[in-house]
Write a protein that binds this DNA or RNA. Sequence first.
RNA 1: GCCGGGGUGGGGUAGUGGUAUCCUUGGGGACUGUGGAUCCCUUGACCCGGGUUCAAUUCCCGGUCCCGGCCCCA
Length: 419
Amino acid sequence: MIQRPRGTRDFGPAEMAKRRKVEQAMRDACARFGFGEVVTPTFEHSELFTLRSGQGIIDEMYVFKDKGDREMALRPEITAAVIRFYVNEMSTMPKPLKLYYLGNCFRYENPQSGRYREFFQIGAELIGTKTPETDAEIIALAVNCIRSAGLENFVVRIGHIGILKSLVKDQIKDEATAAEILRMLDKEDFDAMGDVFDAKALPRGLFDKIVSIADIKGGIDELNNLEDSDATRHLREVFDVLKLYGIEECQVDLGIVRGLDYYSGMVFEVDAPRLGAEKQILGGGSYTLSELFGGEPVFSTGFAIGIDRVVLAVEAEGPIKTPAPLDAYVIPAKDDMRKYAFGIVARLRSQGLKADVDIMRRNLSKNLKYAASVGASYAIIVGNEEMAKRSVTLRDMKTGKQQVVLVDEVGSAIIGSSK
RNA sequence: GCCGGGGUGGGGUAGUGGUAUCCUUGGGGACUGUGGAUCCCUUGACCCGGGUUCAAUUCCCGGUCCCGGCCCCA
């Protein structure tokens, strides 16, 4: 027997119904915000991703040589591809350009709860603008996606990378040390950071200042403890617009750093506290990536949501309700009724109902059992007595109640009952 | 890459140094229109490799996969 590769999953019909419901809710949210869908290749030149994220990620990607000896990689994320697409073919489109995507991504990591080697992301990129309104729009969309997906318990943390980044870069001249300190900040590893300060004989006062800024978490008023700067003014405006959008559950968290260089402004993350170790369901921020891929510098803001984790988090709050897989299952009461059954199921299908019919020539009892076990809402029993009056028996599989209905009216009777 | 816990039919289980229990599910039949019942028949399993042994599903080692955690997290 051939096993499924480590860290991958098969999704059956019941699970896909739930996943599609969550996905569709988030797609609809993107459409409501005026974002258009794009699809990019599942694999790209691996350079696209190393340009974005550094050589180090090679170890965590599925990289391979194709038959033309080109080095390719299964995409570990989709933002880079969208920006490549933009630089290649969409750079003259009207701004702001609003794009969203949904697709599978691959990372060679050790699987654990909420972490797989093949996983699914939905994300959005808002290209060509850097106003606070832009950041607010992206955050509003992110929150809308998550709410639409049905998640109630989540925490939105918004920061501004410029505050700490400019402080660290201004005060620490050695670039490597500065980068190391930013990385430790992101992990909130202040002990290790203190060691670096001691080792490099950096001023203790700077350490205390960094720690106190990184520690700023809470309402927007927390910014009052800082001296005014472009970054704080920007954040305040973002929060103002979010409030106008009716989004008030966001917190300030200046400890978010998100290591990479091209993140320059607003950054944000969303956690679902119920998930435990892998609780971050979204990450995003504003960046200037286009230059990296040979385009003009363009400001962008975007985010990516981990769909698998959203599904896990929503289910942790309660079962995801999906419609019955089948509206009606048509059962001939006796063999000589079979020929009528197909015409009836065809009519139901043409009316847009999910309808099925016995094709295994089973008896009534077994067919009822089948209808129940596949989750049909109704069984339609086609028998001699009813057909003599151009009727069938409509059995509600949930209650067991039956009524005789004219063939011409079965479809509308079912449609009416589901309203 | 590392750590902990696991792998017996499709699912859930019992058990054992001499190849396996029960439930459920799947398929078929009886019951000749409601028995989503009941009865009968039937398909189907000890993760893989090596070692110890007369004999390994059982004991040992390695691998693999699953669950969770660390590292990492674009």
